[in-house]
Design a protein around this nucleic acid. Structure first.
Length: 723
DNA sequence: ACGGCTAGAACT
DNA sequence: TAGTTCTAG
């Protein structure tokens, strides 16, 4: 039964691995003299000694905390070693930490599905590995048990801190008459201990881990014994653990939702939640969050480990606090250029190393306006299609900024005069790139199934500096004449072995709604690639004209209104679509196999009619391309032993990173079956290589959050300042 | 008008 | 989709 996942019984083995004060460790590896000393990583030395972003455990003993200033840290711990975070382009540069994180991920991904949860945390689904171990070399059969595993903390084992703790753990790990679930966890603990030793050996980094039946508990456990230790949560100790656990300790409940639970429902521990019915919690917090709360009170969390080794977005930002706020367009331009340079560089290496392309550029800013009582009005975020090339990103970001500034100024009904200081200041700027998709699209399993095996990638690979041909930017005013004609688009050229092969990367997100005219949007948000339908050869680095004219118009009136005080903030918890343990209904229609559908189906019926041919062409090109070395590895093994620079089966095997399945999701109405009507069991009939992908796609979706607004106490989530 | 920077997710 | 908001480390 490879497909049908047990959703009720939590027989899964999930681990959460957390690097110990990671930035400090990275610096200590660079400077081994610092090992063992109280150390902190600090950024921006200039003001009050800079602010701490990581603190070693030696320093924590002295009471040094993250969020202290360097000077404060010196006071409580005069011996503390403060290491500066690297600076590039006048801002903190976290690249060394990012690549350190990648080193770790590449090791941790060896034994099971791995999800990069942050720069220094991962989740692992070790269920299969644990089951295999239990079947082949169960702990009780081992002569010696890994010492690192014996040092595990096992919650609920009596005498955990006593003299015989180790003996107890050894017994627990290798007990042959234990609960099956515990045996699986024991195997998980052995595997994690092994992995942690490998991480230490290969990277010199220590980490802590939690091993449990689901993500929530694993995460909880990994923080319980640090540094360099691991904690197991046997099924039988879940109840006792949660009973007295302060509600705010739970992930997602550390903020306003947790506060609301405390002050509105009097819930102080997770156990206190048990007295509330699911309905009651739904009334208070909406269906999804209500159900989620009901479940976590019982230690239930069905969230899947996602199988994603790479980040889903990249960003670069900087704050300009108080007096350093930016007061001129020129200074904004300057900093935006720095941020965009960094972003562009990172996008380029993501493309080089992972063959991924980002599709959306977003600009965020913070601003104040003097003389206004509510002087911290929101500066609106703006986004647009992302064009590769540093200069284009800089241009586009600047245009987004200008568009945002117009809105922002509009709310004050005042005018900017040129670039002069006008009572406003920018206190924060950031640019980010998101909607990152694997490329080419033909490498996903479903498409492979239709197109046959991908050819191996060419061995020698050119530098990709010239892969992405700069598209000639059209001025926004020119763009209008192209409205609706965005069929083919971002023209990205990849070199083949001998000749260059052109690819049009499908970005359905932008192709979807043809009924909407471009005029509905701020033209400055439209990049040239939206309008192009031919290969652009030339770059003209600066927007010729147009940008000024287009920025002036059309920002809608509704933006001018100040947010009303009674606006509500609603909550929903993450990943409920995958995680609902209690489900209200299930359909058992759709008995016909979808296999026959696949067999007889022309792949082009995946697409919307208008685009079918063009995109199909791209997919064929992609599949036939000799330009992509990663295609074979992408398509093969379920587990990944390489660095995340290579695209991984996990990414393509699940839905999110895979452009093909993204297409399918978006185009699902072109299927002849409704998703809800497909009997999940028919997936078993599919070829194994595409089962997982289809399965992911068929998973139950979250219910629309129909909060009963009247009875909701969501108003307690109003921003504090508005209360 | 100070914690900075980055990332993920959900909702509308 | 674009934009906002929350959360976390």
């Amino acid at each position: 039964m490879p497909v049908a996942k047990p959703e009720s019984s939590d027989a899964r083995v999930i681990a959460h691995v957390d690097m110990d004060c990671f930035y400090v460790q990275v610096e200590q590896r660079k400077q081994p003299d610092l090992r063992g000393l109280p150390t902190a990583v600090v950024q921006y030395n200039s003001w009050k000694g800079g602010s701490l972003i990581a603190v070693s455990y030696e320093a924590r003993k002295y009471g040094v905390k993250r969020s202290m200033r360097g000077d404060e840290a010196k006071q409580v711990c005069p011996k503390i070693q403060l290491v500066q975070v690297p600076v590039a382009r006048g801002k903190a540069d976290l690249n060394t930490y990012r690549s350190g994180g990648s080193e770790v991920v590449s090791i941790l991904a060896r034994k099971g599905r791995c999800e990069r949860a942050s720069i220094d945390e991962v989740y692992l689904d070790l269920t299969d590995a644990a089951e295999t171990m239990l079947a082949e070399t169960p702990p009780e059969s081992l002569e010696v048990i890994n010492e690192e595993a014996i040092k595990s903390h096992v919650l609920g084992l009596n005498n955990e801190d006593g003299i015989d703790a180790k003996e107890n753990v050894r017994e627990w790990l290798s007990s042959s008459d234990a609960d099956h679930r515990d045996k699986l966890l024991a195997c998980g603990a052995l595997i994690v201990a092994e992995l942690r030793m490998q991480v230490l050996k290969e990277t010199e980094f220590t980490c802590s881990a939690g091993i449990a039946h689901n993500k929530m508990l694993a995460k909880l456990a990994s923080g319980m014994n640090k540094p360099a230790q691991q904690t197991v949560v046997p099924f039988s100790s879940v109840k006792g653990l949660l009973e007295s656990l302060p509600i705010k300790k739970m992930k997602q409940l550390g903020g306003k939702l947790g506060t609301s639970l405390q002050s509105d429902l009097g819930v102080n521990t997770v156990g206190d939640l048990l007295q509330f019915s699911e309905e009651k919690l739904q009334e208070c917090y909406g269906v999804n969050t209500g159900t989620w709360l009901w479940n976590i009170a019982r230690g239930i969390s069905g969230e899947e480990v996602q199988g994603r080794l790479l980040p889903k977005s990249h960003g670069s930002g900087k704050t300009f606090p108080g007096p350093r706020a930016l007061k001129t367009i020129e200074s904004v331009q300057h900093w935006l250029n720095q941020l965009c340079e960094e972003l562009s560089e990172r996008l380029r290496s993501d493309l080089d190393q992972n063959k991924r392309i980002a599709h959306t550029l977003t600009l965020h800013a913070r601003a104040y306006k003097l003389g206004d009582s509510d002087s911290h009005k929101k500066f609106p975020s703006k986004s647009c299609p992302l064009r590769y090339g540093t200069i284009k990103i800089q241009e586009d970001a600047m245009n987004l900024f200008q568009a945002g500034l117009r809105d922002y100024m509009g709310t004050y009904k005042s005018k900017t005069q040129g670039s002069q200081y006008n009572g406003w200041g920018i206190t924060g700027l950031s640019v980010s790139a998101s909607k990152i998709l694997d490329t080419p699209s033909g490498t996903c399993s479903i498409m492979k199934y239709f197109h046959g095996q991908c050819p191996p990638r060419s061995s020698s690979e050119k530098s990709q500096d010239n892969l992405i041909q700069d598209a000639a930017p059209l001025s926004p005013s020119e763009s209008e004449s192209y409205s609706g004609l965005n069929l083919t688009e971002p023209q990205i050229v990849f070199p083949g072995e001998e000749k260059e092969i052109k690819h049009a990367i499908p970005t359905l997100d932008h192709q979807e709604d043809k009924s909407k005219t471009w005029k509905d949007q701020d033209p400055s948000c439209l990049s040239s690639q939206q309008m192009q339908n031919s290969i652009a050869q030339e770059t003209s680095p600066l927007l010729p004209s147009g940008s000024e004219s287009c920025l002036g118009m059309s920002q809608s009136e509704q933006q001018r209104e100040f947010p009303t005080e009674e606006s509500r903030i609603k909550y929903a918890m993450p990943s409920l679509d995958r995680g609902l343990q209690k489900r209200k209904t299930s359909k058992d229609k759709g008995t016909s196999s979808i296999r026959s559908f696949f067999k007889t189906c022309d792949p082009s019926s995946f697409r919307k009619q208008e685009h079918a041919e063009a995109i199909q062409l791209q997919d064929v090109q992609a599949a036939e391309s000799v330009g992509f070395q990663s295609t074979s590895s992408i398509c093969s093994e379920p587990n990944q032993t390489e660095l995340p620079k290579e695209s991984t089966p996990e990414q393509t095997g699940t839905n999110s990173g895979c452009s093909t399945s993204a297409h399918i999701e978006q185009q699902s109405e072109s299927w002849r079956y409704k998703v809800d009507e497909i009997d999940p069991s028919v997936v078993n009939e599919l070829p194994p290589e595409i089962q997982e992908e289809v399965q992911a796609w068929l998973r139950p979706h979250k219910r629309p959050n129909v909060v009963k607004k009247g009875s909701s106490i969501a108003h307690y989530f109003l921003p504090a300042k508005n209360r």
